[in-house]
Design a protein around this nucleic acid. Structure first.
Lengths: 188, 188
DNA sequence: TAGAGACTATCTATCGATAGATAGGGGTTG
DNA sequence: CAACCCCTATCTATCGATAGATAGTCTCTA
C-alpha cells in the first residue's frame, strides 16, 4: 500500500475512532490494526498523537468549511440553509451513532494538546460565522452583534441536540429537539 | 482517615476529574494520589472502574434531582425557574471551567460500561421531566407532548451552550448563547 | 469481663495489558 | 544511489486489578 493511501486511511480510521470513542481512547495500535499496518508506521506519518489529532481536527474543519461555503453559494433563504445545516449533524448520528468530532473534542478539552484545542475553536468559529451569514439572508437589518449571538446559540443548540441524542443512541431525540428549536423560533 | 471520609473524598475528587478530563482519563492512581491514599484503597471502596463511574453518575443525578425538586417547590414562574436552571450549568463553568458530568459522559458514550450509560440517560430524563413541569407553570394548556419536546430542546441547548463555552474557556460564550436562546423564545 | 474471632480499611508489591514513542533494518522505486 | 515507506524490536510509563499482610475496631461468647 502506497503512502498517500496509508496516510488517508489512517486519517479516516482515526476520525471515526475519535467520533465514536473520543480522543483519549484513540490509540496508535488500534488505528494501525484497523488500517492494516503496524503502529510504528502510523508514527512515521504522524510523529505524535498531538500531530495526528490536530491534523484530524484541521481536516475536519476544512471539509465542513468547504461544504458550508458550497451551501451558501446556492441562493436560498435561511430556513433552507438551516435544513442543510442540521442535516450534517444528523448524518453523523445516523452513521453509526457518531458525533461531530469537534463536539467530542470539546468535551475532552483538558486532555487535548494545545494545537488540537486551537483547531476545535476554529471549528466553532467557522460554524458560527457561517450561521451568521445564513441568518443575514432573512434579516439583513438585524444588528450584526445580535445576529452573531443567535448564530452562536444555534451552533450550541445543534451540538447539544446531537450530544444528548447520541447518549440515547436515538436519532429521533435529535429530530425532536431540533423540531422544537424551530417551533420555538431559535432556528429558522 | 476513617472510611466514610475516604469514600467521600474519592467520589469528590473523581467527580472533578471526570468533569474536567473525562471518563477515559479518570485513573485510580490519580484519584488515590489526590485523596492521599494508595490505588488499592480506591479499589477497596469501588471494586471496578465501572462501579466508581456508575456511583459517580448516580450521585450526580441524585443531587441534581434534589436541587431541582427544591426549586420547583418554590412558587415561581417558568422564567424564574429557567434562570435558576441555567445558573446550575453556569456555575460548573465558573468553577474551574468544568462541565456537567453527564454531558462529558455522553460524549464518551461508547467507552462507558453499560451501568454508567444508564445513569447518564437517567440524568437526561430527570432534567427533561423537570423542565416540562417548569414550562407547565406558564403554559398549562399546551399539549404535554409539545411541552416535553420543548423541554428536551432546552436541555439539549443548555448542554450545548456549556460544551462550546468550555471549549473556549469563556463563560461569556455561555451567557451570550443562553441570552440569545431566551431572546429567540426557546428558553422562557 | 476477657479473650477469640471477624470485620474494616489500609498498605506494599505485583500482575498482564496497553499507552505513546523510538532506533535501526530492509525493500521498493524513481 | 537516495528517498520513501514500512517493518521488527524494544523502551518507559501507566492502566485497571489482585494478592497478601497488617493495624485497629467491633462483636459475641465462655
Amino acid at each position: 500500500m502506497s503512502s498517500p493511501d496509508t496516510r488517508q486511511s489512517i486519517l479516516s480510521v482515526a476520525r471515526k475512532m475519535v467520533q465514536s470513542r473520543g480522543y483519549s481512547a484513540l490509540s496508535f495500535r488500534d488505528v494501525a490494526a484497523s488500517v492494516g499496518v503496524k503502529s510504528a508506521s502510523v508514527h512515521y506519518h504522524f510523529p505524535t498523537k498531538g500531530a495526528l489529532g490536530s491534523e484530524l481536527a484541521r481536516g475536519y474543519t476544512d471539509e465542513m468549511a468547504a461544504y458550508l461555503a458550497d451551501v451558501l453559494g446556492e441562493t436560498a433563504d435561511a430556513a433552507a440553509f438551516m435544513t442543510k445545516y442540521v442535516g450534517v449533524f444528523r448524518a453523523a448520528l445516523v452513521n453509526e451513532n457518531r458525533m461531530c468530532m469537534c463536539g467530542v473534542l470539546a468535551a475532552e478539552r483538558d486532555e487535548l494538546p494545545a494545537e488540537v484545542q486551537a483547531e476545535v475553536e476554529r471549528f466553532a468559529e467557522v460554524n458560527v460565522e457561517w450561521l451568521g451569514k445564513a441568518l443575514e439572508r432573512d434579516e439583513p437589518r438585524v444588528p450584526l452583534a445580535q445576529r452573531q449571538a443567535r448564530a452562536l446559540a444555534i451552533f450550541a443548540a445543534v451540538e447539544g441536540a446531537q450530544l444528548i441524542a447520541r447518549s440515547r443512541s436515538d436519532v429521533a431525540v435529535y429530530d425532536q429537539a431540533i423540531g422544537a428549536m424551530r417551533t420555538a423560533g431559535l432556528i429558522p
